[in-house]
Amino acid sequence: MTTRTLIEAIRDGLSEEMRRDPTVVVMGEDVGKKGGVFLATDGLWAEFGDNRVIDTPLTESMIVGTSIGAALNGLRPVAEIQFADFIHPAFNQIVSEAARLRYRTQGGFAVPMVIRAPYGGGVHGALYHSQSVEAFFTHVPGLKVVVPSTPYDAKGLLRSSIRDDDPVLFFEHKRMYRSVRGDVPDGEYTVPLGRAAIRRQGRQVTLVAYGLMVAFGLEAAEQVAGEGIDVEVVDLRSLRPLDRETLLGSVRKTGKCLVAYEDNRFGGYGAEIAAIVAEEAFDFLDGPVSRIAGPDVPAMPYNHVLEDWFMLSPAKIADAIRRLAAY
């Protein structure tokens, strides 16, 4: 075991996959000599060279579209979008092309590609360096969407994503890059897509979260534990495919479900979780399926007071748990 930060685990996962499989290449803005603006690809260019670590122009659609083409011709590209906020110019390539090539050719074409993108706020990133964009992509059949919350998972899920034969969006919460540490095995391992993890066992309320909200949710659970509220925290890890069994199993046990997500509340990913729970665990519920999420303003403001207002926190989540537990 070695203790690694989230970003170190991602870098390890990338470099080990590149050593294992010569078809894995990395493309993106500043991923070469600089090693990425967050240093996720630091050292890769020195080890693997120009052919496999490719600095691109500022062209997100090209980064994704060219990765699709390279995937069709036998490579496994890992595209980096510098900030999830800048993924929108590539939306057409991701949704109209990457997600549909397999379906529209009856399996004749496949796009084994990973798109990595740092997401999330609380880092003074303002409107364009803070966004959560997962809901745009979890809506799309043909895509897989992964959000790790621990260094162990970041490495293991990234490896599975690179080896997957379908396009995977891999969202990394930038506030966790260096603030989260954890044990990572030295040997090779993977974490399969589509399996949630129960981070904390509890009997009274199920808190469903992913990414940074898992860490906040665990803190919130500790805060309310002293008040006698026993919270189970489900870390989805993989938003699509979704591990329904773990989700519904937990809610059927606790009878209460709160979904925490940083994105705007309206139409966010948590709305789908709430709908599934309402449809499939209705008979087990003894409180309204609830959401605690970002406010419905276009994006996160910069000023620190306003940013704190936007961001969820352990205290805000704890309040929501108390309200739900009171039913």
Partner: peptide, 8 residues
């Protein structure tokens, strides 16, 4: 872009 990626 697919053709360019294929060429790459």
């Amino acid at each position: 872009l697919h053709a360019v990626g294929i060429a790459l």
